[in-house]
Design a binder for these strands. Structure first.
Lengths: 162, 162
DNA sequence: GTCTATACTCTGATAGAC
DNA sequence: GTCTATCAGAGTATAGAC
């Protein structure tokens, strides 16, 4: 809290005018991150063919996470520091987001363009795979974001195809 | 440290007979986990066809991680609490392990049974996907470990196929 | 709304008796 | 090898002046 206060330019005690305690501050941070994630996806998702929607999701998820490395880091590392009720709220938001991808996979199966033995597992597998990019990506590295999106979409598409 | 001491059944000070400090204790924990991971894979890997080796790797990685949920959790959450030198040691072990999978993918490409536009990215993507199982798996859940292995290998195999 | 000052608790780690 | 006692520092949070 002292460190946050110093960066903001106030004394530690002044922070308690804006948050009842540290846990709530963390919670609001994680919640706004998830809210932005879901809202951003809702804004850009459309109702095209499942393949196009899957490609859009892959590129969106990578780009959104790479644009917010600190927030992604916090979401994964600090989630355990929330109490059970606040934890459950974030978990639900995460599930809401996962459902967006799962629906794409289900629609693709119904349209016979995707084949996944278990759409829930495919959803979790794909998101874990995409989120993993944040652990090794560095600006100015070997691959551009566009190229990374190309490669990952290629793998994802094949993984859920016949 | 007091909590560890209590579970072991000694006083906190007594722990310092076995470790110079807390960071080193964490380091030894992470290192032995990685050493065991690599040794266990070396023991069971053989030189069959790339597809068989890939399937073995997928099943091995899932099983090994599910057998040690606390160690996996520690490895991901506490790695940042190591100083730069110790961090580098663990990172190198992680890379050594990744190389095992990357070699399978490269051999498969040479044998024209795998097609991956970038074997390094495919390696990282596959490992992230497999490790993600630990975040949602619960004993006694909907799917057996065997079935999870089946589903994940199906996706992995297709992801690196033509 | 912010500051100073401080209470209280917890932490990792050490010293010295046994 | 273990315990008791303790230190120094950091942590969150609150009280009261301005």
């Amino acid at each position: 809290m002292r460190q946050i206060a110093a960066e903001v330019g106030v004394q530690a005690g002044a922070l308690y005018l804006y948050t009842p305690d540290k846990e709530t501050l963390l919670f609001e941070l994680l919640r706004s991150h998830m809210d932005e994630l879901i809202a951003a996806w809702q804004r850009q998702s459309d109702q095209g063919a499942p393949q196009a929607r899957l490609e859009a999701f892959v590129r969106f998820h990578i780009a959104f996470n790479l644009d917010r490395p600190e927030a992604v880091f916090l979401s994964y590392m600090e989630l355990r520091n929330l109490g059970p009720e606040k934890f459950a709220v974030i978990e639900q938001l995460r599930k809401d987001y996962e459902t967006q991808l799962e629906q794409i996979l289900k629609d693709g199966q119904a349209a016979k363009v995707f084949v996944a033995p278990d759409s829930k597992l495919a959803t979790l597998a794909i998101i874990a795979m995409l989120t993993g990019v944040t652990t090794w990506y560095r600006d100015g590295g070997r691959l551009s974001r566009q190229k990374i999106g190309d490669i990952y979409y290629d793998m994802v598409r094949k993984a859920v195809s016949a």
